[in-house]
Amino acid sequence: MDLFLIAHIAGRGVAIDTTQIDSVVDLSPVVAVPRAPSAVRGLVALRSRVVTVVDTGIALGLAAMPADARRAIITRLDGHHYAMLVDSLEDVASFARQPLSSGLALDRGWAAAADGMVERDGEPMLVIDLARLVPAPQAIAA
């Protein structure tokens, strides 16, 4: 049994392993990063640290998050902090992680980000690996 945070991303309920979560915050205004991949919404100051804000909608290959999305999960990857925007948060609970049901055809970004599933009151939920939602560096478009 692991601890998971239940959140909503792109209108779906997902479970996120709490070991990946640094904190949960409401973001102050975001400063854009011109020329960065579209999934990078910008930079934000979190205490004395600069955090890169990730639009999880775009990262999943879906529609962009609304411009006023403020709630985010802070995660750390390779020494950098990222704020992953979410629609809303529910609660934290322990679940047993299960492998994805066989034959389940996930689409677009979901397939890349999924890392198993959990069952809450009979409702299956995808486990999302935040690290896989962090935009990878793209080659410079000349």
């Binding site: 205004p29 400063v31 990063v33 960065a36 999934a39 962090v134 935009p135 560096p137």
Partner: peptide, 22 residues
């Protein structure tokens, strides 16, 4: 800055000035 930001090739880093905005 984060790798995805550095990969744009036009930035050398990020900073938090006294204004409080990155």
């Amino acid at each position: 800055a984060a790798p995805a930001v550095m990969a744009t090739g036009v930035y050398a880093g990020q900073t938090l000035p006294d204004s409080g905005l990155p």
